[in-house]
């Protein structure tokens, strides 16, 4: 048994079974067995799954439809996003007060 997607514990057999059901693209594999949906977003398994697809469908790797890359680039905590939002707001307030001072002078 070979583990292909280590975030979601997906084995090669599961991926081959999905291809036998009619999956021909990385996106379909992702949706059916969740390979590439874990915290690393398919950075490890994307190429492996592409190779399995190419092997099973007897097509060159270049002809396998790639999956969509989705933000964020790596897992982000909610509090970090909120902190960034607050920093931007504070900066805007600072800018606004500065331009007011400038006008007064």
């Amino acid at each position: 048994m070979k583990i292909i997607c280590r975030c979601q514990d997906i084995t090669e057999d599961e991926i081959v079974a999905a291809i036998k059901q009619g999956a021909t693209t990385l996106d379909e594999i992702k949706r059916l067995v969740r390979a590439g949906m874990g915290p690393c977003q398919g950075r490890t398994c994307r190429r492996l799954v592409t190779q399995i697809l190419a092997r099973e469908l007897k097509k060159p790797v270049a002809e396998i439809y790639p999956s969509t890359f989705r933000p964020p680039n790596r897992p982000v905590q909610f509090k970090l996003v909120i902190a960034e939002l607050e920093r931007q707001k504070a900066e805007e307030v600072k800018k606004a007060s500065k331009s007011k001072e400038g006008k007064k002078k």
């Binding site: 915290p39 933000p71 964020p72 897992p75 982000v76 905590q77 909610f78 509090k79 909120i82």
Partner: peptide, 19 residues
Amino acid sequence: SRRFTTLFPKLTGLRIVRQ
């Protein structure tokens, strides 16, 4: 993030994986 943490104030440590 703003809406979710208003409704669930204790879950600010959850990590967003994908949108």
